[in-house]
Amino acid sequence: MFLSLIKKEFLLEFRQKSTIGGVLVYVIGTIFVSALCFKARLDKPTWNALFWVITLFTSVTISGKSFLKETGGQALFNFLHYSPQQFIISKVLYNMVFMLCLSFVTFFFYAFFIKNEVENLSLFFLVLVLASSGLAGVLSLMSAIASKASGNFAIMSILSFPVLMPLILVVIRLSKQAVDGLEWAGVGLDFIVILVALNVLTLALSFLLFPYLWRD
């Protein structure tokens, strides 16, 4: 069941080449603009903060549409064929994979156009994985809410930014340690535990709350 739903998401995504291409151009364009604006004046903390701001804005913009497609006949079909739990879990899983690819692409272009300041790459990649799964969890539910709220696009960012703040702050702290090249022994385990806990928490909340958004 999950697999068919996730497969459907990927098929839809790749059938419309314009969305994938759009995302790529969006990311590259944003990074290029910030590269021109900041020139070479980026020190490590700013490099780190700018990277996460770009990732945050991209993911909010991209995932805002993840439920907008599910309207009309499509929504009725989903309603008849799947349970809400299956549906939200498959959405979150799909978004996780998508965000993960997106954040790696962002990192690649960011490192290419600006520079690569990361000294502990394995820790940074761990942060990328945890951050994108957390973002996917929160943003899937927020996108479901926003899609019900009269299609106002700004509402997606209004709703998501404040609830994403705890996640983003922990992520920025942890990724700062990766950028500074802290050895694994010295890394704050607290932050990793909190990130995992936040992931679990958002998943559980989406799982519990989504059925109430499901019916119209």
């Binding site: 809410i145 404040p162 609830v163 709350l209 109430y212 958004l213």
Partner: peptide, 10 residues
């Protein structure tokens, strides 16, 4: 329904 979901999550 929708605002209750957001309220709990938030």
């Amino acid at each position: 329904r929708i605002s209750a979901v957001y309220n709990i999550f938030a």
